[in-house]
Structures are given as C-alpha cells and as structure tokens.
C-alpha cells in the first residue's frame, strides 16, 4: 500500500499528490511514469512522475479529473493509501548535450513537462517555457515553471491571463525572432503536439513529444499502447513515451484514444452519482 502524504488542489480539476513510494523514488527520472490502481478491482492508469524526492522516498503525481478513475483517485485524502503504484516505467527523457530548449506545456501536460524543464535548468540548459491553458482558472505550476525558465511565456485561449492565443503562436513568434533551439519539447493534448510538430518541421527544429495512449500493464506485454512512429509500430510504455514529433502519426493516435469513449462516459456518470459531486 502506498500512502498519500500530501494533497494539494491546484485548480478546480487538477490536484497534486505526494506518495510514499521509496523504490520508485530511488530510480525515477524525468519523462518516466507510474501506473496506479486506486483500489482493489480498480483500473490501471498511467500518470507521469511530476517530481520525486529520493531522500524522503516520495513521488509526486499531478492528475486532472477527466473520468471515473481520476475522480476516484481524487476522493482520497492525506493518510489514505493507493492499492498499487508501480514504476518508474518508460524511458527517461534525453536531456544530454542540449544547450537551449523550448519546453511547451499545454494544460495538464505542464505537469509532465515540468520535471523535464527542471532537469534541463539544473544541468545548465537555457530553457524557454511556453505554457498554455484554456483560461486563467486552469493555470497550474506557474511559479514552478518561472523558477526554472530563462524565458517564460504564459498563454490562455481566451486571454484571461497572459497572452491570448495558442502555444504555437508564441513558439512561432520566438522562432521568427531568430531564437535557435537545439530541441523543442512539447507536451500536452495530442492536437497541440501535432500542431507544434507541424510548425517546427517547417522551421527544421527537432521536436520531442510525450505520447499518452491508453495503457494497461506498462511493461510491453499487451501492445495496447502501440503507435505508428516513422511508419513503424512502437509501444509507448517501453519505447517511449517520448518520440520524435515529426515521425509520430498523430491522427492515428487521436483515433485510438477514443476507443472506449462510450464506456468512459458511462463510468464517469456513475462515478459522479456515486460521489454525488459535480466536477467541471
């Protein structure tokens, strides 16, 4: 059993938990993820290692409440335990040798992007962060990102905070202004990553995206997380989740993510009734 040591609400649908998981904390690197089950009989869901403390033996996760399992997770409080918590899974993000990088986070994707930005900053890489949210209420990790960024751009879709527009607008501006990046790292909704990759391809800038297909085991055993990358089949849980954004077939990935939409909606409604709570 894995105890929740700390829980912080970040915005109406996003929260952060610090979990006691010494063995995971010992090995975790930015870019890796864990798989958890909230309770016995629960579904297995992957969440990124948002932070870790090797000394304290803790791993931080940040989750957005989007459906039944994340809602069940959010019912737990400090002192409660998760039934299962396995990791670190996946391949760590490659950061060696990078001198200047643009890190782009969209929505809860910022939680995934942050540990990478932090590691880059700590190793002396110049980090330009572009973070985007739908509106001001949904902003998370602003301070954390500023602390590790040499330049930081805040975007909201509706202009209620920072600059109005999409992260791609901000990236284009920086590129047009002559910024030279060794790499762009883009993490967020598939549609965002698709358009960032499209843009950077025009500019010839290498782009890494973090893919989040539906997973079960996370060890390469089921093939459910497969993607087409450069015309080849890859298992995101072991070969990724980071991939070359110019090679990924985003349209296929977007299709595959909707596989269980109906079931998920039903489960979500049931969970809402169960917890008698209106989220969103």
């Amino acid at each position: 059993m894995y105890e929740i040591l700390k829980k912080t609400i970040l915005n109406p649908t996003v929260a952060r938990m610090e979990i006691a998981a010494p063995l995971v904390a010992k090995k975790a690197e930015p870019g890796q993820f864990i798989i958890l089950r909230v309770d016995e009989g629960g579904e297995r869901i992957p969440l990124t290692v948002a932070d870790f403390d090797r000394e304290k033996g803790t791993v931080t996760i940040i989750y957005q409440i989007v459906g039944a399992t994340t809602m069940a997770l959010n019912q737990l409080e400090e002192g409660d335990c998760l039934h299962d918590f396995v990791g670190p899974l996946g391949t760590p993000s490659h950061t060696e040798g990078l001198k200047k990088v643009a890190v782009i986070g969209g929505g809860v994707g910022c939680a995934i992007a942050f540990p990478v930005a932090k590691k880059l900053h700590e190793q002396g890489t110049e980090v330009h962060s572009i973070v985007g949210f739908r509106n001001k209420d949904l902003v998370i990790l602003e301070e954390e990102f500023s602390a590790v960024s040499d330049k930081m751009v805040m975007m909201t879709d509706d202009g209620s905070y920072g600059t109005k527009g999409l992260v791609t607008n901000a990236l284009k501006e920086l590129l047009d202004a002559g910024e030279q990046y060794d790499e762009v790292i883009a993490i967020g909704p598939l549609i965002m990553m698709k358009f960032v990759a499209k843009l950077t391809k025009e500019y010839g800038v290498k782009t890494i995206v973090s893919m989040n297909p539906i997973m079960i085991d996370g060890t390469g055993m089921c093939g459910g997380c497969r993607l087409s990358v450069g015309g080849q089949v890859k298992f995101a849980c072991v070969d990724g989740p980071d991939f070359d954004g110019h090679e990924v077939d985003f349209d296929e990935a977007m299709e595959r993510a909707t596989m269980y939409k109906e079931f998920e909606r039903h489960q979500y409604d049931e969970a809402c009734n169960l917890f008698q709570k209106e989220v969103r």
Binding site: C222, E252, R256
Partner: peptide, 12 residues
C-alpha cells in the same frame, strides 16, 4: 489496418 480500434493482441 492493425492499429484500428478493435484490433487487440490476445494478451491485451
């Protein structure tokens, strides 16, 4: 077509 929705490995 192997990555269409509704194609599983037996393991999955």
């Amino acid at each position: 077509g192997e990555n269409l929705k509704g194609v599983y490995s037996a393991n999955e």
